[in-house]
Computed example of a mutant assay.
Amino acid sequence: MAALVGSWQFWAVLAACFAALTALFAKVGVQAIDPDLATFIRTLVVVAALAGILAATGKWRHQGAIPGSTWLFLVLSGLATGASWICYFRALQLGEVGRVAPIDKLSVVLVALFGALFLGERLSAANWAGVMLIGAGALLVAYRG
């Protein structure tokens, strides 16, 4: 069990499960209020939950000096997360969750491209085929035919 909990695959599958629940809960929750307010409420919940986790695990302590580049990229990541959530909640309010969520998951395709272009990561031909299938699948799910 320790090996399973220590694997990236375990956490990635959990992330996918929670992301699916996020989409369903958000679709229902955003129907009666402004999507920006819904995003704000969601963000407060995330902040409170993470504060609780940090306090409960004893990780709420000074980690030493945080390099400027770390701050920069974490702030940029936070801004990108916020922009993604705002757009996602607006899309959920306007569209069907079963069609919005797959388009949102085109981020898988984009992150593969960006990882290769900007971080020098290399994917095999089979990996790129999978990326293309994810993209094609997302588009097919979103297509109203």
Rank of each mutant, 00 (worst) to 15 (best):
L76N: 07
G64C: 07
L54R: 11
G82A: 15
G95M: 05
R90P: 00
A101L: 09
W85D: 02
H62R: 11
W85V: 12
R90M: 06
I103P: 01
P67I: 06
H62P: 01
A55G: 14
V75D: 01
K105F: 15
Y88G: 02
S77M: 09
P102K: 06
G58L: 09
V75A: 15
V109N: 02
G98M: 08
G98T: 11
A65I: 11
A55V: 15
P67G: 08
G82W: 11
A55H: 15
G98S: 14
V109L: 13
T57E: 05
L110M: 12
A80G: 06
A65L: 11
F114T: 12
C87L: 14
E96M: 11
G58W: 07
W60Y: 14
Q63T: 13
I53D: 01
G95K: 04
Y88I: 05
W71I: 14
L74K: 08
T57W: 11
G115K: 08
S84K: 12
G115C: 07
S77W: 06
L72I: 11
Q93M: 07
V97I: 07
Q93V: 05
S69N: 13
G115Q: 05
A83E: 01
C87E: 01
G115F: 08
L106H: 02
L74P: 01
G78T: 07
L79S: 04
W71G: 11
A80L: 12
V108Y: 05
R61S: 10
L94D: 01
L74Y: 12
G115H: 07
V100L: 05
W85Q: 08
